[in-house]
Lab assay of single mutants.
Amino acid sequence: MAEQVALSRTQVCGILREELFQGDAFHQSDTHIFIIMGASGDLAKKKIYPTIWWLFRDGLLPENTFIVGYARSRLTVADIRKQSEPFFKATPEEKLKLEDFFARNSYVAGQYDDAASYQRLNSHMNALHLGSQANRLFYLALPPTVYEAVTKNIHESCMSQIGWNRIIVEKPFGRDLQSSDRLSNHISSLFREDQIYRIDHYLGKEMVQNLMVLRFANRIFGPIWNRDNIACVILTFKEPFGTEGRGGYFDEFGIIRDVMQNHLLQMLCLVAMEKPASTNSDDVRDEKVKVLKCISEVQANNVVLGQYVGNPDGEGEATKGYLDDPTVPRGSTTATFAAVVLYVENERWDGVPFILRCGKALNERKAEVRLQFHDVAGDIFHQQCKRNELVIRVQPNEAVYTKMMTKKPGMFFNPEESELDLTYGNRYKNVKLPDAYERLILDVFCGSQMHFVRSDELREAWRIFTPLLHQIELEKPKPIPYIYGSRGPTEADELMKRVGFQYEGTYKWVNP
């Protein structure tokens, strides 16, 4: 592979701008107003304001973009700056750019259920340069409990009458099928589907988006991507930290609602779906819905739930269990780990287990898709061969690698495990991989909904998990304890083995 010439960040961002501006969906010269509902909250200060700053800094926003914060707290732009700027990672050389960014910011205080507050917000936006005809993007960085009041008031008082209007809704989209349907029906009564952007930030990850290209742009994968060759698929999300004093919020939802029903299920769809007619948003989402419709409700015998306990040999936070978090209700049975087996009941995947695993306070930070292939028929190497695996590593250190057998150097035919490896950090030294939120917010500006969740996708996802969630809430089974920093409950490994996964433990990928 030829040595790549190092590029400056300015040059890299210039390439990104060229890609972005050559499309006809990006209205570079139009006025846009980006409204952050819930501007005083954690999500706004840690993710949304920093993301908008990065896009502005790199010249990736339309030229005439204004940012308006809205929340109940009586704040000023200076207050917003004070709480969000520490997350910007701005350099001293960017000081003038930073001043320009905050000059485009404003803030309006108001209630979430008060019509007069929204009329005041609308008047404020109209007073901005060309504000009355601007395109408006409303980001709901809010708890779902206020979605209905907020969307109703936005629709009645704050819509642009000339430009387009788009609304970005953060997960969780309800707690179960019934609450999700209620919320979807409410929002759909106010906005068209092409105006609604239900954001799952995992769909903005580079390697998640790469799944489609790997599958449908490489001839070698087509013939082997089926039940005849693939023994099982494992989708993993692991965090090495616990709730760390923020367990009160987590306890309301648990690990299945927080990660599995959305992030992991979306990745499953991209692995299992048929080739779409095109890369058009609805063509892709149509195929994802077909996959979900082929999955039956989760069966309790295919589920393992766990909850982390303190590690007596650990240090600091590792010595504390979930129930030691003062914000967690006493005696909570909320799971911090889950392993679930699903089956896609169609011709391509009949009988292939899709194993979804996620948890907190585990032994490493990792998100990946792992396809394990069947054993080689007619073994001539005296059971020395391990199964081939194709691994798409989402985070950290984005990579695609194939675990395969090669001859060990020497005189004899002794096979050993090795890999074919594409590590993004080595291959793409001159490429700026956008943060997931950067990519998705740019998608909203461009009107691309491919990486957002459609209402029928959402409904099918909740259909699969709601009976299990209701059973857990009714019966309150005690989750299996696992030690902070471990791989999780051993019962999860036993479940995976029972459905056909072979864990060798003899080879570990190392970032080159």
Rank of each mutant, 00 (worst) to 15 (best):
I15L: 12
R17M: 15
L20I: 10
F21W: 07
S29F: 15
H32N: 14
I33H: 09
I36P: 01
M37S: 06
G38W: 01
S40G: 10
K47F: 10
W53M: 01
W54F: 09
D58E: 13
G59W: 02
L61K: 03
P62S: 08
E63I: 11
N64S: 12
F66C: 12
G69S: 07
A71L: 01
S73E: 06
S84W: 06
E85I: 14
F87M: 14
T91N: 11
T91F: 08
K97C: 08
F101M: 03
F101Y: 05
F102P: 01
R104M: 14
R104V: 13
N105Q: 14
S106N: 11
Y107N: 08
Y107M: 06
V108F: 13
A109K: 13
G110P: 02
Y112L: 04
A116V: 13
Q119K: 15
R120A: 14
S123C: 08
S123N: 15
M125V: 14
L128C: 12
L128D: 06
L128H: 15
H129M: 14
G131R: 09
A134K: 13
A134L: 08
L137I: 15
A141P: 00
S157H: 11
C158K: 03
M159D: 10
Q161R: 13
N165C: 15
K171N: 00
G174C: 06
R175Y: 09
D176N: 04
R182H: 08
N185V: 12
H186V: 07
S188K: 06
S188W: 02
F191M: 11
D194S: 12
D194T: 09
Q195D: 06
I196Q: 04
Y197A: 00
R198D: 04
I199H: 02
H201M: 00
L203N: 06
G204K: 00
K205S: 03
E206W: 07
E206M: 14
M207A: 06
M207V: 05
N210D: 11
V213Q: 06
R215D: 02
F216Y: 04
A217Y: 03
R219S: 07
I220W: 10
G222K: 07
P223N: 15
N229W: 06
V233A: 08
L235W: 07
L235M: 10
F237A: 07
T243Q: 06
G247F: 05
E252Y: 13
I256V: 11
R257P: 06
